[in-house]
Design a protein around this nucleic acid. Sequence first.
RNA 1: GGGGGCGUAGCUCAGUUGGAUAGAGCAACGGUUUUCUAAACCGUAGGUCACAGGUUCGAGUCCUGUCGCCCCUGCCA
Length: 599
Amino acid sequence: MNLKLNPIKTVESAIFRLFKNDPKLKNYFGEKIDPIIRLSDPKFGDFQANGVLALAKSKNLNAIELANDISQKLSDEEYLGTKYFRMSVAAPGFINFSLKEDFLIKWIQSFNSIDAITKDISKYYDKKTIIVDFPSANTAKQAHIGHLRPMVIGESIARIIEFAGAKVIRDNHIGDWGTNFGTLIMIIKKELIDLKSIGTPSEALEEIDRLYKKASLIEKLTPELRDTSRNELVKLQNGDLENTQIWENIITISNQAFEELFEQLGVRIDVTLGESFYKDKVQRVYDELSDLKIAEESEGALVVWHNETKKFAKNNPRPFPFNIRKKDGASNYASTDLATLIYRIEHFRAEEIIYLTDARQKDHFEQLFLTANKWIQAKNYPKPNFKHVWWGTILGSTNKPIKTKSGGSIKLQSIIDEAIIRAKEVVSQKNPQLSENEKDSIAKAIGIGAIKYADLSSNRTLDYVFEWDRMLSFEGNTAPYLLYVFARINSIFKKSNLNKTIQDFSKLSELETKHERLLVRKLIQFSFALEQSLSDLRPHFLCTYLFELSGIFNTYYSNDKIIHENAETQLRRLTLCHRTQLILKLGLKLLGINTIEKM
RNA sequence: GGGGGCGUAGCUCAGUUGGAUAGAGCAACGGUUUUCUAAACCGUAGGUCACAGGUUCGAGUCCUGUCGCCCCUGCCA
């Protein structure tokens, strides 16, 4: 048997082979059937094939008889055989599959390292070039809680598809070319501010943020200043040296301040190409889309209608065009996104582009993709896949979007700081004997891990409620609970005299207890969870799995003594600890969460 | 007005894309430690899956309608 990480694949390919080779089945159903194999309730087995029911129905056959026929044929050595799988049929026509002991052992022996797992899973994307557009940091403004989800979800998705074999380019598409720069330059000149002398990047950014708010207020009181600002913006756009210098300083400060956050949150960025980079590339968008008659003038602006989609059709009572050039001739979000998209195809040879934003931008991306596809088709450009990965809002305890008491947005840095402080309080309380350094590094891992895990563990398309006590709790589906299991296993290895970095754990002796078997079966389900997360780019499937794995490990731990007088038993149980740790570390890594050796 | 999302236990959430008797965690109640980290484990209780129809062997999941909440709806990104 060719062992696959995911045994469902093995079962599936045996069924496909059967339907290809068996003349009777092939005649009746053809080769393109879907066996619909799913995990099943443990009392029925490990997996079940639900597809027989539909097949039987399509030809008016007795489903149980068909299921019996198929499962009997699968027992042939040519297909699944009987060494590794046990099959049974249940009403009204399910085929149940159980993994036999030999399979459990063989699987554990085969997938004994990250490399072994990587080798299997990297075929999923097979070196496809994928641009992940995140976290779209803004400039001249401090990061707030709204930046949390793009950083956390984006990083996790990037890691997951990278692990699945994609060549990932993380492109931070910064908003560095807005009208706000006129206002900022105005106030900076007016107050003779030297941005470089302010302090650290985040302090400087805070000052810029404050200056902008102040300037907006002044503009309201003295409208002449608004003209000054507009004039500064025009000068900037025309390449005025002094204004360009100020603009560059602001961008540099913003990027540096964001990098501090990326560093803390473990976000990696490959390229940072903002709107300013595309400012000389939007003309091509206007030209080509106009020439192709994809875009047309409307109320002075250049827009794209999509008549095949009711919502974006021209004859809609309340029209909703894709506006790609404002009536004053300026570019906007849409023009830049189109220019960016073409650049990514031509320069990066992107085969897939994943955009990460919140739910409110769904219409924009629907219009963007419709427009891009028409453009690409007309010009015969290479056509990548487009995906919009979106998410809901972070809510406060009142079930309204989370805000500070005064109604402002909460700074991302203050969230991180508070998480670490809260985590440290708990660590100090639980383990007062640790050194201050140890407490700090543990608190950092737990605090940041907790924020991230809270964001990732529920379905991203839903809103979620931000609750400190829950995310930092050591009970339930939380980062601390998972991290604890990891640390606990470390402690076992320390107590045993086996060095897990030297020992290869390549053999596994016969399993003895029910908890050993349950743990192995759960370990085997890893790839299933991973593939679920991959198929829809939803990390919460992986979270749910890791939580369940941890629970099963804890049960195992409290029932089966691992440090054992019998050397063989001890080695086997330590091997299971080793694999649990392997999967936990890998899974958490894919979520962007660092493990800690002790806590 | 139009479009989209959501509604599952007191609370926070899962529910394997239509499968077998709807699951966790918290909170509540009860139990487990001379033994590898009790930051753990085990148990009890808690449900008209918003409501009403429909589709079929089979619906929390798909379709229609109703109610409720949230978001988007021409030049912000």
